[in-house]
């Protein structure tokens, strides 16, 4: 069995195959890469690098996209009720 590493994705710990790329992670999560922004250890990635950057133990990945403001802010973990999108 392939070696696994621990990474953090959108604030949650998860296991990941060692040597997997950011692109592999997005595919595993069934996230379409168009209109998605990825921040890796606080640095915004160029989408051209998704398939070239391998994930390392302890990497912190943030995957963001566009939403209407009406969803409760549980995704942010701040619990501030509504976000306005005006």
């Amino acid at each position: 069995m392939a070696e696994t590493i621990q990474i953090q994705v959108n604030g949650e710990q998860r296991g990941c195959r060692a040597e997997a790329t950011v692109g592999d992670l997005l595919r595993e999560l069934a996230i379409k890469t168009e209109r998605v922004a990825v921040e890796l250890n606080l640095e915004i990635m160029d989408r051209k690098d998704f398939d070239h950057r391998s994930l390392k133990q302890g990497d912190r990945v943030e995957i963001l996209s566009f939403i209407g403001g009406g969803a409760p802010v549980d995704v942010q973990g701040k619990g501030r009720g509504f976000v306005h999108a005006g």
Partner: peptide, 15 residues
């Protein structure tokens, strides 16, 4: 539109 974390636990949520 606002920019927020993608929900990774429930991918059935539409964009």
């Amino acid at each position: 539109v606002a920019v927020r974390r993608v929900n990774i636990t429930d991918r059935s949520r539409e964009n």
